[in-house]
Amino acid sequence: MNYKNKMISVLYAVVIAVCGLGIAGQAAAGSGVSEVRPLLLAAADVSSANIFNRNLKKPKKHNPPPPEDGIHDTSNEATFSLQAPLEAYKGLPKTTFGNRVDWVKAIDQGLIKPRWDRLDSNEEPFVMDLDIVRPVKASVPDVVFPHRQHTEWLFCSNCHPAIFIPQKGANQINMSAILLGKKCGVCHGKVSFPIETKTCKKCHSKPKPKDWKPPLSEATLKNPWK
């Protein structure tokens, strides 16, 4: 009797869970489902792999306060004494990526004054205004590396010579290396703005000449279109 009750209860639970998944699955698939089918059947014979976004991960909430961010322990009381990012970002220029703060503008407009020296809040940074243009083989605009914005934050020795030889064109850079956290990717994608569709043109900022056409690949040159 007890055993039977337990079995029924487990069965109930599983059925309800499956139903729940069915409903959620349909909700996720959007309103495009026209055919009305019994939920249970739908869940049973349609692959659950067909969720609308298989790989897209979008955060529900941006800039969560420490107790809700998934890395701070809420059983640690001090977690609740830590500052929430949004409290600090109030009034700073916004973006839609990374910390969602435009750190370059924030410094340029004097809205934040981070120290250049650990102790002396009056020491000025050693800023150098030198743009380096790097032509790109692909159709995307050429890359302009601006020393000015970088030397507002960093010292020459942060990049030279460990990450970049200080000589125009002396460094081999490509997107693969950057995405893997090398070259520009040492900082971009970690602390400075990330690499995503919304940021491509921050680096790829010099438009190609009007008459520029992408070079044809050898396979096409050998077998031209008819």
Binding site: N5, I8, S9, V10, L11, Y12, A13, V14, V15, I16, A17, C19, G20, L21, A24, K57, P59, K60, K61, N63, P64, D69, G70, I71, H72, P85, G98, N99, R100, K190, V191, P194
Partner: peptide, 28 residues
């Protein structure tokens, strides 16, 4: 029993979704 299994079922569903939620801490 019905109520308990309903609760269990709901929890199970939530659990299945909960597992796939990545931590979303502040960038950097």
């Amino acid at each position: 029993l019905g109520f308990k299994s309903l609760l269990l079922g709901v929890l199970l569903t939530l659990g299945l979704f909960g597992v796939s939620q990545p931590a979303k801490a502040e960038y950097a």
